[in-house]
Computed example of a mutant assay.
Amino acid sequence: MSGPGAPPAPRRRRQAAAAPDGPGMPPHYLGHRQRLRERFAASPETLPDYELLELVLFGAITRGDVKPIAKALIARFGSFAEVVSAPPELLGETKGVGPAVIHALKLVEAAARRVALGAVRNRQVLGSWSSVLDYCRTAMAFAEREEFRLLFLDKKNGLIGDEVMQRGTVDHTPVYPREVLRRALQLNASALILVHNHPSGDPAPSRADIEMTREIVSLAEPMGIVVHDHLIIGRKGHASFRALGLL
């Protein structure tokens, strides 16, 4: 309707500048994946944890922006290592994390353990001590519950077995020294390295840890089995009974 009696036409609002994600505009993360891949190829050690995690998530979430998910996981668990080591049920509590993401993260965890174990397997363990520590940290440092692990060695101190003997609670694992020695005899092991973790993060040995270790040593000696060390692994580092003078 127009003419002298017609109501004034409504003013057109001035269109605001389109946001990066506005209609017809490319998403703000367009090209981010390729740029991040190029940065990783050039200098992988410089990427912060959340960006390394993004690269893992690219395979599980093929489209869209995964940075918010990566940052949420780091905020929840603390670091890249703690994210890939977290229990699946806890990972699934983070928005955007489904079965495909959990599978990708657990695959990274399994690969890291396999690489660390490869540096120890078929080698003279006492001559590769830093690799032993790396493997134990990779396998146990971020576990939610205590685990008691045994590394079985032959006469040349080569690794012939690696077994988790017991799993317990957040602060206790029942260990049966006679079962430890029975298994060592079954594998014809000549030496042992005892390993367990402290989920609290503090690797300092407890009185119970010391007493249990002494009992295993006392049973092993008459059988000609040497206990080289007892390692306690925590988020904040590790403790060695031998280095502490407890063996």
Score class of each variant (00 low, 15 high):
Gly224Met: 07
Ile74Asp: 04
Arg183Cys: 02
Ala141Asp: 05
Pro174Ile: 02
Tyr50Lys: 01
Ser131Asn: 05
Leu181Thr: 07
Glu146Gly: 02
Val170Lys: 10
Leu126Thr: 10
Pro99Ile: 03
Pro68Asp: 01
His32Ile: 11
Met223Trp: 15
Ser131Asp: 14
Arg33Asn: 11
Leu133Met: 10
Leu244Asp: 11
Pro8Ser: 12
Leu55Asn: 03
Gly5Asn: 13
Asp65Arg: 02
Val164Trp: 02
Ala119Met: 12
Ile74Glu: 01
Arg13Asp: 15
Leu246Gly: 09
Ala42Tyr: 02
Phe142Thr: 05
Asp154Gly: 06
Asn188His: 08
Asp154Pro: 05
Arg14Asp: 14
Arg33Gly: 13
Gly5Arg: 14
Leu52Met: 10
Ile210Pro: 01
Glu221Gly: 03
Glu163Leu: 14
Tyr176Asp: 07
Arg235Pro: 02
Gly118Ser: 11
Thr169Val: 05
Val132Arg: 06
Phe40Cys: 06
Ala139Val: 11
Glu211Val: 15
Glu89Phe: 02
Ile61Tyr: 04
Arg63Ala: 07
Pro203Arg: 00
Val226Leu: 11
Ser218Glu: 15
Leu192Ser: 07
Ser206Tyr: 05
Glu215Ala: 15
Lys156Arg: 13
Leu247Ser: 08
Asn197Val: 02
Arg137Tyr: 10
Arg63Gly: 03
Leu126Gly: 01
Gly3Phe: 05
Pro44Gln: 03
Leu36Val: 10
Glu147Pro: 00
Ser206Asn: 11
Lys236Arg: 15
Leu47Trp: 11
Arg33Pro: 05
Ala139Asp: 14
Arg37Ser: 08
Pro222Ser: 10
Glu144Gln: 13
Leu181Val: 08
Leu192Arg: 03
Thr173Pro: 06
Gln166His: 08
Met140Tyr: 08
Ala75Asp: 10
Ala70Phe: 08
Ile160Gly: 03
Ala104His: 10
Pro23Asn: 04
Arg214Phe: 08
Gly78Glu: 00
Leu53Tyr: 02
Phe80Ala: 00
Tyr50Glu: 07
Asp65Pro: 02
Arg35Glu: 14
Ile233Asn: 00
Leu185Trp: 00
Pro26Met: 11
Asn157Cys: 09
Asp171Pro: 06
Lys155Arg: 14
Ala141Ile: 03
Leu181Phe: 05
Ala86Asn: 06
Gly234Trp: 01
Ala17Pro: 09
Met223Glu: 15
Ala9Lys: 15
Leu52Asp: 06
Arg149Phe: 09
Gly245Thr: 04
Asp154Gln: 03
Arg14Pro: 12
Ala208Arg: 15
Arg76Asn: 02
Gly224Ser: 08
Lys71Glu: 15
Arg145Asn: 08
His228Gln: 09
Lys156Trp: 09
Arg11Cys: 13
Phe241Cys: 09
Ala60Pro: 09
Arg121Gly: 01
Ser240Gly: 01
Leu105Asn: 11
Pro87Tyr: 05
Ile102Phe: 04
Lys236Val: 05
Thr138Val: 14
